[in-house]
Design a protein around this nucleic acid. Structure first.
Lengths: 317, 317
DNA sequence: TTGAAAGCGCTAACAC
DNA sequence: GTGTTAGCGCTTTCAA
């Protein structure tokens, strides 16, 4: 029976087909749980977003995490793993009853206990570089330094000399790296370092931070790099409200996966963190570890992509 | 052992606590799969969005489905069920290996096979009213007719007499009901029925449909009800591009969960389909069916909520 | 109170 | 090519 349904035994294809067909029409379905018990793993992986731990489910409303989540689920399913959604900052009790082969922890915050809890429970963790070196933890990361460098180089090439960075006040590794890379770039290019932090995520606070960036400081900035998730059309509106023409007075680059950036006037240059590529690299790594017993290797660093559009190209004379 | 860890046997609380503690420090973790096998169910439910079957994972990028997904996962987890993400239009092979106690199918499209496949596999289905009457299928639905009625009544009360509806060309039950309710309302109020269909989802096509609605037809409309997911700031921009002042020339209501509606100038009136309430009602129903063997009851009809903001309030004289 | 055993449904191994 | 069996790790039941 078992031999017929799976490809295990050495049966003639004909016999197998007949058995399969018969089984199917009799409404037979193998019990998934029993198979999992036998197999010793459930092909189930957990997925948590560490950021926004105080509003555990809002991550799906961010275009970046929406894409990352979808791509993770898609890639995993293609490899035979199903993804279960877990809330940010989730407790033992919420996942202890699940037969998780591994857990993906996207952008853990500095004080998040979940990674430790999972490792203590001997569940492999796949996260960003902040878990580097912990036994049982593996990483894939976005090249934050390259991202900042690419955007600032682009501004510089377009003639901007007073760029300002807006970044959330978050303790994820990504945001810390962005800040550091910005500092390094400014030092290397002899440009004053101007940074404004958004107190919280969400369009309201981020737009307010943008307004602060555009109105405070010794002189008016001529370029804005926005590394916080905000709606591109709202950012453009904010710039206009404060008397900036984009791209005439202000070059604008948003780190965003929001496709509305394509439909504004002018269209907004975006820096894509490539959630699909991150997900693919992560799941590929996960499969390698789980199925081929791969040991701690250096993880993968996924490059970003700058999609230059009119908002960051200085108009010709 | 078992008796100690769970509350089953009649052990003294003291003994139980000691056993628990000992087990924990020895690093013992009960095998979740074995428990599930024993229990006869996995407390795992599938979640599929039927709409957008050709782009299986994009549903998370829609604010409505992002909220619905998050709320479903949250509510389910609070009741002890974990949610696994399945792609739209998914095949047997993708979920056959999962021990699903039930599957939530959000907004199935007319020709979607998944509901039939699940029922054939004797997996309970929770969906919208389009599955009404099928054995093993249960429903919870949004009150589409009330939604349309509320919005059109609001327009009428504000003095608008030439409202136009923009709706996607989709075969979900919700969109069919919206069209019917619109027709009925127009007939009842002696208002000509004006409808424009968006060929596809996504900001591009929907904005084009809005532009068609604003520029074609015998006369310029004085109110726009947008039932397709689009970014509110982009909709406002489109109206302005075509010479409409909002709300002076055109009243605007968007069916949307997008919080950018709060941050535009003027803020946009939205009609919320209450994804959180839908998710809660759905999971409550699911738990009742799965755990208390509830038979086919009429499902629940969740009311919508109109959040009136400046975009749909005719300015005073 | 403590211990042993049956059995959930499957698959891999071994005997026929 | 077909049939039987052991055992995955747990919980429940029955026996000591």
């Amino acid at each position: 029976m078992s031999a017929a349904l799976n490809g295990t035994g050495r049966l003639s294809p004909e016999v197998r087909e007949k058995a399969r067909e018969t089984a199917r029409r009799m409404g037979y379905r193998p019990n998934a749980t029993a198979r999992q018990l036998r197999a010793g793993r459930a092909r189930l992986i957990g997925y948590v977003v560490g950021e926004l731990a105080d509003t555990p489910w809002t991550f799906l409303e961010s275009p970046y995490f929406a894409r990352l989540t979808g791509a993770t689920a898609a890639t995993a399913l293609a490899r035979g793993y199903a993804v279960v959604l877990l809330p940010a900052g989730s407790l033992q009790s919420e996942w202890a009853a699940l037969p998780l082969d591994a857990v993906v922890v996207a952008d853990p915050v500095a004080d998040d206990r979940i990674v430790e809890d999972l490792l203590a429970a001997r569940i492999p963790v796949f996260s960003d570089r902040s878990v580097e070196g912990r036994p049982g933890a593996h990483w894939v990361d976005v090249d934050a330094a390259a991202a900042v460098g690419q955007a600032l180089d682009h501004f510089h090439a377009q003639g901007a000399r007073r760029p300002v960075l807006v970044v959330p006040d978050s303790s994820t590794r990504f945001h810390r790296e962005v800040t550091q890379a910005h500092r390094a770039w400014c030092a290397a290019h002899g440009v004053p370092e101007r940074t404004v932090r958004a107190a919280e995520p969400g369009n309201g606070p981020v737009i307010r931070a943008v307004e602060t960036a555009l109105t405070s400081g010794p002189d008016r900035p001529d370029a804005l790099l926005l590394v916080a998730e905000a709606s591109p059309p709202l950012v453009l509106d904010a710039a206009r409200r404060h008397g900036y023409a984009v791209p005439g007075d202000l070059l604008l680059v948003c780190v965003s996966e929001d496709e509305t950036a394509l439909h504004t006037e002018p269209p907004v240059t975006t820096l894509s963190l490539r959630p699909d590529a991150v997900a693919e690299a992560g799941i590929a790594h996960l499969v390698a570890v789980l199925e081929r017993g791969l040991r701690e290797t250096g993880g993968a660093l996924v490059p970003v992509r700058l999609d230059v559009r009119a908002s960051s190209v200085r108009p010709g004379p």
